[in-house]
Amino acid sequence: MNRSVALFGSTRVTLAGFVLLGAAVVAVESWPGAPDSVAVVPLVLLATNLACALATRRRLRTGGLGVFHVALLALMVVAAGGRLTRFEGRVEVAEGGELEASAVDASFRGPLHRFRLADAAFAQGPLRVEYRAGLRRAHTTTVVRVRDDDGRTRTVAVGDDVALVVNGYRLYTTHNKGFAPVVTWTPRGGAAQSGALHLPSYPRFDGAQELLWQPPGGSELRVFLRLDQPLDEARDWVLEPGATSAALVVHDGGRRAELRPGESLALAEGTLRYERLAGWMGYRIYYDPTLPALFAIALVAIAGLAWHLWRVPLAPRLARGAALANEEA
């Protein structure tokens, strides 16, 4: 048994693991369709090899080398735990609206992840995105109102590298955002309903700011947003939907009408009122409870390696003066 453990903990197995892991990560990078799980097998091999080596070779458990190797093993175990509990996804929230958990589009969900992002966890406030000439995106800022577990609300500003953290979920603003005209639809004999029309991403789809929309109980309408000030790519520019002047163009069959904020359009099945222009923001969602532990362990590992380096004996006569004296003798 001990012999097997020693054999599996040999440096030759370590080297084989390095080669396999190197090949796996190159494969993941080279073939876009390759799942990153192909790196799991060599990582498990290396973790097992390291555990066996630590069990059988005392030198690896002492001093800086010991700190480094134990931390490295812990890093692999914690990273695996993070992978099992991780959640990644996307969601878009309109200004004035609240997060709808059902609207979250999950791209990765670890088998041990329990989804805890609740409805109305936060409400979207105004957004502002700065652009430099040439349509180069600069700062993104948006204000959100977060509802904590105790029912209290707080207002926070997020954007760029500042994430919104709700229940451990980290929500990052993205390049994906756009206009969301707020309208009120009053069907004949029915109650008025307000909501935001979610137009395509802007300025990515500048020129295609339209959608087909069917009001509840009404006929399908083609809705188009016409900005009073067209996008000028040659100049610095700010996307601030709440402060943008635009007309909502509504096509109802052969009929065309342009609405300004506060104006209404009487249709066969009811009345459409254009309230105001707002925006929507696309968020990237990331949940991994192991992030602080991963960071701390990685720093400990590097500190161990540095400690080991400091203590490694240098060849005799290598001090700068001695070496030169030797050389020039």
């Binding site: 990560v25 993941v28 990644e88």
Partner: peptide
């Protein structure tokens, strides 16, 4: 902080890891 993931197999990440290995 910047892109909402600490590892995404982008070319520079991959080749830095290969160099480390």
């Amino acid at each position: 902080d910047a892109w909402g993931r600490y590892w995404a197999w982008d070319p520079l990440e991959v080749w830095s890891l290969v160099t480390w290995l």
